[in-house]
């Protein structure tokens, strides 16, 4: 078949459809993953003994369990106990678990690096512990955690491809379908690689812009 026709009429439309699904997966996962990550970090740092242990267990499990296996558990395992998800939902839940576990580690590290004096000063002004954490500690910690969170976001873009293995036809999935059907593996996967590189590059530029915008003079980000 004519290469140009293959590219313009078959591959690109398929990949663009797949890209939309990939972006949807990311768009749903990233905000929830961040919020949950913050909650877990706070729980692990300031929670009662029980909450600390639960959060620890959460992080150990979701950092240690391969994401693909997690998706299998959600998509193939849970229906056996009567809980059924669509493939898209299973993928998003899996991504959120993984993303939040890693994010919580970055945020916790950043919270521990915020000086003790900051919390004491806030309390001295009459803030409750909760207010102090929300208004004083977190705004500093989140800024410090930006490089880690950004990293995790880039990872999310890449591991969103695993959704294909549980039948979500996102970017990688759409490429695989076309490649198998037309037996054009190398061409297809090189093009899909360029798609990912483009998405990752755009995301990196965006992240850098955000980082600059929220920067505070003299506040060291490590």
């Amino acid at each position: 078949m004519d290469q140009i026709v293959f590219l313009t009429e078959i591959l690109f439309p398929a990949l663009i459809g797949g890209t939309v699904i990939t972006l949807e997966l990311i768009a749903v996962t990233a905000p929830i993953g961040l919020l949950l990550g913050i909650a877990i970090a706070v729980g692990r740092t300031y929670g009662s003994w029980t909450i600390v242990e639960i959060c620890k267990g959460y992080v150990i499990f979701f950092k240690g369990c391969p994401l693909l296996l997690l998706l299998f558990i959600l998509y193939f395992g849970f229906p056996t106990i009567g809980i059924t998800f669509t493939a898209f939902t299973a993928a998003v839940i899996g991504f959120i678990c993984c993303n939040s576990a890693y994010n919580s580690e970055y945020i916790r590290g950043a919270m521990l690096s915020v000086q003790q004096g900051q919390l004491i000063a806030a309390k001295a002004l009459g803030m409750t512990k909760r207010q102090a954490i929300i208004n004083i500690v977190l705004p500093q910690a989140l800024r410090r955690a930006i490089p880690g969170i950004s990293n995790e976001f880039i990872y999310l873009i890449k591991y969103s491809s695993l959704a294909y293995v549980i039948t979500v036809i996102e970017l990688t999935g759409s490429a695989k379908q076309v490649a198998t059907k037309y037996f054009m593996y190398t061409e297809t996967f090189i093009i899909v690689a360029l798609f990912y590189l483009a998405i990752v590059t755009v995301a990196t530029i965006g992240i850098n812009a955000i980082e600059k915008r929220v920067a505070i003079p003299g506040f060291v980000q490590k």
């Binding site: 890449k158 990688t172 490429a175 695989k176 190398t186 996967f189 690689a193």
Partner: peptide, 15 residues
């Protein structure tokens, strides 16, 4: 910049 899955497909089926 690439997902492992894409790299695996590229090398296993393509390269």
């Amino acid at each position: 910049g690439l997902p492992v899955l894409v790299l695996l497909f590229l090398f296993y089926f393509g390269i």
